[in-house]
Write a protein that binds this DNA or RNA. Structure first.
Lengths: 202, 202
DNA sequence: CTGTCTATCTTTAGCAG
DNA sequence: CCTGCTAAAGATAGACA
């Protein structure tokens, strides 16, 4: 049974939402306890909910809780503002990061695809004339990278061979790092996924 | 390579502690975002640290943050107190729960061990006279349970046999549910672990 | 410091009792 | 409401670039 990936969105179903809330609230409180234990940092968590009239809080000591909140309250407005950004900026930051990662993955995917085309050409399965001008240029770049990799590998092998003249350089090593893929490498089988669900840092 | 389980204690090593702090702070903030998104609950997190002069907070909007904290502050003292317990009580609660689980697991382990003794006796590998008085009593309990299980199973099989007279009752079924373990069941191989690291609820 | 990778460990959604 | 289970997703320690 393949369970669906949980979407990061408001859970409409009342029962599920409540169950999720209970579980995740416990999870956050535990994480808070762990962080404060492992690193000895003051931390406060306040969770309001429609399920409890009184908010859940960490730490469970009123005084410790009050201390953290008070220190926050007493901060100069400038400091708060410096650290703060409004919700829009916050989301914008996530989008920016996600977009960067996305582009990076897209680029990698394109290079993988080009590499496959290259292998096709080498095997004679595809004629280069089937490609458009832009694709040919990209393919050229990939081939350049590939040849550079081969040359680096050759350098290493030749140096190794020179220093250790008693044994033959293992060709299997070359095969491992620059092997030509065989049929089971489908056209879409090795394309990477992209996931927006990433942690942001400050 | 078997990595060591991380102990839930203050991390002495400065570098590790800092790295852990950064990662886990991000983790908590992400969890907070997820919880507030999934269940649409107001939540506030404040993390002070020696690494940043200004605390890290969630949500990143000053106003939303202030709202949650203000609502907390405005609560009557009785309500706060009702929800609160001091650190000692908090830890005591965890210990109580953990102790219960521990006892339960210990009991299960003891029964498993007794069961193995019983099998040993049945096979003739161990003579019952090797056991102490208390162990004999426990063994008696286990055997009683076992025989009850066998009788229940027999009841079921006889009922099935009575209703479906066309087919022979499959003995393999009995073997599956009450099979006598063979040599590979080592004396300590099937003893359960106990882990104190559990989530507490309110 | 910041990001990356991967082997493990932890959390949790969904279901059953 | 709670507990337990399991498969899958997520978090993260440690090592490295």
């Amino acid at each position: 049974m393949t369970r669906n990936r949980v979407k990061m969105a408001y859970i409409e179903n009342e029962t599920s939402r409540k169950a999720t809330f209970r579980k995740r609230k416990g999870g956050i409180m535990k994480k808070a306890l762990e962080l404060s234990t492992l690193c000895d940092v003051p931390i406060a968590v306040i969770v309001q909910s429609e399920y409890n009239s009184v908010p859940e809080v960490f730490p469970p000591s009123r005084q410790a809780m009050g201390n953290v909140v008070a220190r926050w309250d007493s901060l100069p407005l400038v400091d708060k503002t410096k650290k703060m950004m409004n919700q829009e900026q916050f989301i914008q930051q996530r989008i920016t990061k996600a977009t960067e990662s996305c582009k990076k993955v897209a680029k990698e995917n394109k290079e993988l695809a080009m590499k496959e085309v290259m292998y096709d050409c080498l095997r004679g399965d595809t004629a280069p004339c089937d490609l458009g001008e832009g694709e040919l240029r990209d393919l050229g770049g990939v081939i350049d990278q590939y040849i550079k990799g081969l040359n680096r590998r050759i350098q290493v092998l030749m140096r190794d061979h020179a220093s250790s003249s008693t044994s033959v350089v293992p060709d299997a090593d070359v095969a491992t790092s620059v092997a030509m893929p065989t049929a089971e490498m489908g056209s879409s089988s090795n394309v990477k996924d992209f996931d927006l669900n990433q942690t942001q840092s400050e």
